[in-house]
């Protein structure tokens, strides 16, 4: 765990040095002690804000994925399980269609993301079921509906620039993150991350069946809903900051469990750190290798898929 944390810190420094203008280690260290010259200071400030956002989103999305996987006892659960990412994309797309500024896009994405989850929970309530399968199915229904809405918006969008912006949003990027965006969304991410870290032992209990949880003396519905609430907040906040970033929330929890075991007391902090590391690597590549930022989901997909295959092979070998 401490090795992972040191790796993350080292990566932050390396990532500060890398970019379209490479800077030396001494320039980066001068920035942290407040002695950088004005030109490198400007670059490093932008990079630092972006890196903080990347670390928070990487940790947040992975923890949201791990939480959903535990609460629903389903290794295929991802942060989009209840439709939050698809819902957010709809909000962002509508804002883009109406030519709104980046802040309106973010607010609109956040609101529709939360609204979608609310509708998912409502469908589940109408079905009067306590089973997690019904909730997952309700999520699929809402995701499907939101996909159709998103398709309609894309269909009527101006293909010259609006459609491009929408597609760009759907693939995720930190290019437009500035201090104001970080200040408005960062606190939600920090609160969500801290809450889930503090309640990580309870997450183990919630992976049992509802009857057992109840006889252990824990209210299954209340506790599950709390976890789902904070995981949803983390996802919605992430999506409204940088669009939809795929794979991280699904793959990283599996990586962490393979590294430190199933106990969330260790697996969840490991998930947070590994998620931050993977997204930081992906974003550094995204902003360094070409003139334009490469959409993140392209890179996380190329990194995530092979990792996932390796984990599945390992699992098959130990017979799970």
């Amino acid at each position: 765990m401490s090795i992972a944390l040191l790796t993350l810190l080292a990566l932050i420094v390396v990532s500060m040095m890398m970019g379209r203008y490479d800077l030396s280690l001494s320039e980066v260290s001068k920035y942290f002690i407040g002695q950088a010259n004005s030109s490198s200071k400007l670059i490093l400030e932008l990079r630092f804000i972006r890196i903080i956002a990347v670390v928070l989103v990487g940790a947040g999305l992975s923890m949201a994925g791990a939480t959903f996987q535990s609460v629903f006892s389903n290794g295929l659960a991802s942060p989009n399980l209840l439709g939050v990412s698809t819902g957010s994309s709809v909000g962002a797309a509508i804002a883009i269609l109406n030519g709104k500024s980046i802040y309106w896009i973010e607010i609109s994405a956040f609101v529709t993301g939360i609204l979608t989850v609310f509708l998912t929970l409502l469908i589940n309530k109408i079905l009067r079921s306590n089973s997690s399968i019904t909730l997952i199915l309700s999520g699929i229904i809402m995701s499907g509906l939101m996909q159709s809405v998103l398709g309609s918006v894309k269909y009527i969008a101006d293909p010259e620039n609006q459609l491009q912006s929408i597609v760009y949003w759907e693939l995720g990027s930190f290019m437009k993150v500035d201090l104001q965006a970080l200040i408005s969304v960062g606190p939600i991410l920090i609160v969500g991350i801290i809450f889930l870290l503090l309640t990580r032992w309870r997450l183990n209990t919630l992976s049992l069946d509802a009857y057992t949880i109840k006889t252990i003396g824990i209210n299954p519905t209340l506790n599950r809903n709390l976890m789902i609430l904070f995981a949803t907040l983390l996802t919605a906040a992430s999506v409204c900051l940088c669009g939809v970033v795929g794979w991280i929330g699904l793959v990283i929890p599996h990586v962490s469990r393979a590294l430190v075991g199933e106990d969330n007391r260790y697996a969840l902090p490991m998930t947070a750190i590994s998620g931050a590391i993977l997204l930081l690597i992906a974003d550094t590549i995204a902003r360094s290798i070409s003139v334009n930022d490469i959409p993140l989901s392209i890179i996380t997909g190329f990194i995530g898929v092979p990792i996932f295959i390796v984990i599945l092979i390992r699992r098959r070998n130990v017979g799970i």
Binding site: S73, L198, T199, W201, R202, N204, T205, S207, L208, D209, Y211, T212, T215, I216, G217, I218, N223, L226, G261, E262, D263, I320
Partner: peptide
Amino acid sequence: SQGVNIKSSLTLFDYLLLGRSSFHSIF
């Protein structure tokens, strides 16, 4: 419970520890 099919992949120690959950707050 009638549950030889429990799906938990926790270790025996961590699984038994869950029985202590309600002696503590959620945090």
